[in-house]
């Protein structure tokens, strides 16, 4: 059976998720993700004509909240838990690359 996902693809996905994988982990995850994709392929092989796609496991929708303010947090309490702060803001290391 053809591989569902290649080792290179797993390495690519890991890079997108900023994960550093060892050679051994790459090997293992390629097999495991292949199994997951095989299972998805089994489902995809079923005749599902007329069955709506599921985007969510629960049959609920339209959960809405009224537009009423409340539930804010105190800045000093929040910033006290940050590694670094400056002038009421979170201070973070230099950013690489522009915002999307």
């Amino acid at each position: 059976m053809a591989e569902r996902i290649s080792r290179d693809e797993v390495a690519h996905v890991a890079r997108l998720a900023r994960l550093r994988l060892s050679e051994e982990e790459l090997e293992r995850f390629t097999l495991q993700l292949g199994d997951v994709l095989n299972h998805a392929a089994d489902v995809a092989a079923l005749d599902l004509e007329g069955v709506a796609a599921t985007s969510h496991p629960y049959a609920v929708g339209n959960v809405l909240r009224e537009d009423v303010p409340g539930g804010g947090l105190d800045r000093s309490e929040v910033l006290a838990q940050a590694p670094e702060t400056e002038a009421g803001q979170f201070r973070v290391p230099p950013v690489r690359g522009e915002a999307p």
């Binding site: 539930g71 947090l73 800045r75 009421g88 803001q89």
Partner: peptide, 20 residues
Amino acid sequence: SSSPNAFGGEPNTHIDPVCL
């Protein structure tokens, strides 16, 4: 989430657990 949507204001004063 229910912290205010308002322009301006001191930094990090319109925040809540969800938007953080």
